[in-house]
Amino acid sequence: MFKWMLACALIFASLNVQAIDDPWLALQKTAFAARELNYQGVFVYQNGNQTRSVQITHMNNAGRELTRNVVLDGQPREVFSEGSDIVIFNAKHNKVVIEKRRGQNLFPAMLPTDLNVLKYSYTAKFGPVERIAGREAQIIDLVPNDNFRYSYRVWSDVEFGLLVKMTLMNHQNQAVEQIGFTQLSMLNTHDLNWFQPKIDLTKQYVMEEENEVHHVTNNWVVANLPPGYRKIDHIEHLVPGKTTMVNQVIFSDGIASVSLFIEPMKKGIRPKMGHKTVGSTNICANVIDGFQVIVVGEVPAQTVQQIAKAVSFNKQTTAIK
């Protein structure tokens, strides 16, 4: 009797499994769906004690990806993106500041299109099917192979493959960051009328002061980088509120990213030390050889701490710079 039940359960399970039985393939479909489909909806983002609702419209118009995000809570803010170009309309007092950004993976396009890099650090597993924003969604877990990263739970729409929800979970399986649709519909139009900001005639529109960013290669090295992370960029720029250039080195394991900030210590300014957790973000400050080192990332505390301790300047080739 038990054997028969087991057989039935197995048959039922195999019927329930979708056409795709490799979780990596399902993730691949999810990564592309967010960029290729036309949809509109409202999603909620939650990190620590902060919550924001955002209205999104996304369209792929003959390979050109257009997105409009309207932040519904707090100060009025609209984020427009076309490909990797992002323009933000940010209401501040009696002005609207227009900011330019580049290349972010905005929700729901949060998975990288090249998933191969993730395979080193994560294992993909199917979970059950759940209902999100009125739609059936397949859970796919990205479970880390070590303690240097959080785990990602992805809900992928059964019908279209669109990522409808994602949570970041710590080692205790507590959600530290959540982002997901509360309402979602597919768009069946090529009309681009929606791709314009709501203009407030009482406000003055100004461009944000251009923040000079240089891509640099110098001799800052992290001797003992946590496994799976590699340097993906190194820039030098003025962090708002600073008068000297700050080095920012960005590391990623394919989905989680960490920024390392290095700047010379200044007379009369107290050095920053210690550690702090804000929602999913861990921040660690250290002082090495007269330099202020700050590491920030949506990663476990031990990852930022290890990087903050291992920074050094490779003096051998300084003469080149």
Binding site: A256, V258, T281, V296, E298
Partner: peptide, 16 residues
């Protein structure tokens, strides 16, 4: 620094 991280790091779930 948090803002700078969210602005320039590749996966900006939170930044905007």
């Amino acid at each position: 620094y948090l803002t700078a991280h969210q602005t320039y790091a590749p996966n900006g779930a939170a930044y905007y």
